[in-house]
Amino acid sequence: MKKFIGLMMAILLTLAGCTTTSSEANQIVNVYSSRNYDVDKDLLVAFEQQTGIKVNLIEGKGDELLERINREKANPIADVFITVGGEHIYYAQQNQLLMDLDHSPYQANVSDRLLGRDWVALTQRARVMIYDVDAPLDFDVKSYDDLANEAFASSVLSRSSTSSYNIALLAAMIQREGLVKAEAWAQGVTKNFAQTPTGNDRDQAKFVMSGLGKVAIMNTYYIARLAQSSDQEEVKVAERIGVIYPENTHMNISWAAMIKDSKNQQAAQKLIHFLMENEAQSVYATKNGEFPVLAGVELSPILAKYGEFDFEEIDYEQLGSYVIEAVKIFDRVGWN
């Protein structure tokens, strides 16, 4: 019996020994990130090599990490928070989790809508409509509203309303055009669904190509990723995608911020500046197929091919306040 307790204590203590505390070294930065991509890890390694600052990383889902930061508020562990989805800024600001950033190195080259006092966007992705170029659409589609048009009965494809991309899309619509119009739109789109929403963004493109529907809502990020796939069949799908940038195209942003009262503020600030430099922005654009936020950085060829477009002007800091209404609308209209 004693042996067992001894053994358990030994295991627990050994494991507890793996603790990384922020006070051990002065040149470290603790990052909580929901951008679980290889290119992001490459960038962090490049930062370590360039500055000698050790990066400690915990990856997870954005909401869960944010909840964790909130709970750790009294004694913050994270220095930098990086996530996908502008709708999270609201929660972070409401709970006073962030602190002011020094935007001076890049401010002149970043649009005002992409930064705030205590956050800055790292990349953008456009939520667009796609079709099969081999099966052109019958009429000229100009806006998201056209998805609710009767002409598209049983032909619209989308992933589920659990997807944060769809929630942010509808939240942005509520912000821009109000609850009533947003609900009518969601209702109209739901009526036009070709099938119950299922699968992820890439799947929607594949559904279109296999003829399950005519038009789908999809993120440009995944079009770029399809084009770089290890699977030749996926590359072929990417080539057949026709992209429609609607009026007021919804832009999903990834953003970074510094955690209030964090212990390694200098290193944290350095890391954020590093991610906003030309090189890092160019990695996001070419290797990960996202829109850079820094002016003058070149797009990946596949995204450059689709040309200029008209994006929506929304207040990202308020976007999160419309999320609950958006989710409730989805439930009411039956968009699963």
Partner: peptide, 11 residues
């Protein structure tokens, strides 16, 4: 003591 940054939490 930041026990929640250690492995013991996962265990």
């Amino acid at each position: 003591f930041p026990l929640h940054t250690s492995m013991s939490m996962l265990v």
